[in-house]
Structure formats: structure tokens, C-alpha cells
């Protein structure tokens, strides 16, 4: 989604400005890192502690605004919003990370294999990518949800399916560039096998790009998971997810606006964190992209 780098190729160089610029250009990395660090820590904390059990109903205390009951108020069943958001963080992050990991693994495998084999294998692999890519992710997720039943597993599969062509394309084109280098061709000429070359030369050279891409795709995965939950295609209740909290909040917009604001804020901050982290990492790890 945010696959476009902010180019910053300084021309006029002055020492103070350079320092400032470097500080600022590292800014995204720091801000993103801090955001993700914080949300990740909250998510992990939720595994051992939340202010209240997130499923605990106190119907008499329903729809209480923030600070009136608990830190962030209660929902329509009197559940503690802060606790639900914390567990929601874990659910969102764990689904996103697993989905991206699976998508990155499968996509990279496909991409480097296509670059190594070329010919008909590449043609078929890339055609399969096109097929997956052609169906908008929300539609394929809807169908998968109907096929497998909704839940954590379905969400992970649905998101990772869409990640495969993204990673396959990125790694295939990067791997092809590596393959075209003289020393790789020399190694090939010396009788080194495709798998060997992929492991020795291709993967190390494209690792940074994979990491950068994965970070950015994590943001997209969070957004997709939220969208699926919003449509009721995410994890099962009572497991709290940010997307379903938003869906539930829809009918209470007038009476309890915080229910609609807080989960969206959590989603936005997480995605912002991943995107900034991704940008920062790209500047750090992938100078070629930066100088483009």
C-alpha cells in the first residue's frame, strides 16, 4: 500500500542541516519503533494481566464513559473497554504477524524459485499470482470465511493468501537482479546449482527487502483484519477484536462515541507504527531504494 519511498537525496550539504536531517530521517524509525514497542508490550501484558477480565459482563454498568467506570469506560454489555482493547491488541497483532510470516514465507519461496527456474515454472507461478491478485482481498476473505467458517485461523489464511503474490513479486524481481550479476553468472558457469546459488547469494541479498516489505505489509494486515472483523468475518466473540468493537459501536454512536473512537485509534496507531517502522527500516537497510 505504502510501497513508495520518501526520497531524500541531499544536494547542498551543511553540517548542522545534515545532522538535523539525519535526526529527522531517523525519526520514523524511532516513532514507529516506539509505537509498535508499546502496542506489542500491551498485547503481551494482556496475556497475563488486564484491569478486568475482558469478557466480564456488568450490565448495570453498561455504556459508562471513560473514567466513570474503568479507565476507558464500558461497552453495551458493561465490559471494560480498556481490557478489551488490550486483548484486541494481542488478537490483531498475532493474526497480522502470523499471516505476514506465512505469506512472506510462501511468497518468497515462490519468488526465488521462479527467478531460479525461469521458463514455464515462472510463467505458471506468476500466473497463479495474477489470479490471486485479481480478486480483491476483502472478497476472497469473505469467500474463505464462508468456506472455512469464521475464526482466527480463517483470518490468518485469508490475509496470508493475499500476501503471497505481494512477496512473490517483490522477491522475484529482486532475485532476478541478483541472478543477472556477473559473479552469480560466473558461479552458475562454474556448475553451482540453483538451490545453492539461491541460498548463498540470492537470499542474503534480498533479505533486507523482505524485512522492509514485511514490516509494511504488517500494517496492511492489521487493516485487513480490522475490516474482516468489522464485517463479522474475524475472530469469534467473545474474543475482543478492534474491528468488531467498531461494528458493535455503530448503533451506540450517539450515546457512547468513545466506543467508536478508541478501537479505531488503536488500529490507526498500530498501522502508523508499522508504516513508519517500515519506512525507517528501508532508509536504514535498503539504500538503493532510497537513492532512486
Amino acid at each position: 500500500m505504502s510501497g513508495v519511498p520518501p526520497p531524500s537525496a541531499p544536494r547542498r550539504v551543511r553540517p548542522v542541516a545534515t545532522a538535523l536531517r539525519q535526526g529527522l530521517s531517523r525519526g520514523p524509525l524511532w516513532i514507529g519503533g516506539l509505537l509498535i514497542g508499546f502496542i506489542g508490550a500491551v498485547a503481551l501484558l494482556s496475556l497475563v494481566w488486564t484491569p478486568l477480565p475482558p469478557g466480564k459482563l456488568q450490565i448495570v454498568q453498561k455504556l459508562k464513559p471513560p473514567l466513570a467506570q474503568g479507565l476507558l469506560g464500558t461497552d453495551h454489555l458493561g465490559r471494560d473497554v480498556a481490557s478489551m482493547l488490550m486483548v484486541g491488541a494481542w488478537n490483531s497483532l498475532s493474526i497480522a504477524v502470523l499471516a505476514v510470516a506465512m505469506g512472506a514465507f510462501a511468497g518468497t519461496l515462490l519468488g526465488v524459485a521462479a527467478a531460479a527456474r525461469r521458463g514455464w515454472f515462472e510463467a505458471i507461478a506468476m500466473r497463479a499470482n495474477d489470479v490471486i491478485f485479481a480478486v480483491p482481498p476483502i472478497l476472497s476473505a469473505m469467500m474463505l470465511g464462508a468456506l472455512l467458517g469464521t475464526g482466527r485461523f480463517t483470518a490468518i489464511i485469508a490475509i496470508s493468501v493475499f500476501m503471497v503474490p505481494v512477496f512473490a513479486r517483490v522477491t522475484a524481481s529482486a532475485a532476478r537482479q541478483v541472478w543477472s550479476r556477473d559473479y552469480v553468472q560466473a558461479a552458475r558457469g562454474a556448475g553451482k546449482g540453483g538451490i545453492r546459488i539461491t541460498i548463498d547469494h540470492v537470499l542474503p541479498n534480498i533479505a533486507n527487502q523482505i524485512i522492509v516489505q514485511a514490516t509494511i505489509q504488517l500494517g496492511l494486515a492489521i487493516l485487513t483484519e480490522a475490516g474482516l472483523s468489522f464485517l463479522g468475518l474475524g475472530m469469534a466473540p467473545p474474543a475482543p477484536t478492534w474491528g468488531r468493537m467498531l461494528a458493535d459501536a455503530q448503533t451506540y454512536l450517539g450515546r457512547a462515541p468513545w466506543l467508536a473512537i478508541l478501537p479505531g485509534l488503536a488500529i490507526a496507531l498500530t498501522v502508523l507504527g508499522f508504516n513508519m517502522l517500515g519506512d525507517g527500516l528501508r532508509d536504514l537497510l535498503d539504500p538503493r531504494e532510497r537513492s532512486r
Partner: peptide, 22 residues
């Protein structure tokens, strides 16, 4: 309803798992 029932059934030691079914 299921979420409310789940909480009340827990009081008598019953564990009810909610499975959304389209």
C-alpha cells in the same frame, strides 16, 4: 444473548464456547 448466557453459566461451572455460525 450468548455472551450474557456464557457469563451466567460460568457461575454454575459450565463452560460454554461461542462458535459463530453463518
Amino acid at each position: 444473548s450468548a455472551e450474557v448466557m456464557q457469563a451466567m453459566l460460568a457461575e454454575i461451572g459450565v463452560t460454554m464456547t461461542i462458535e459463530p455460525t453463518e
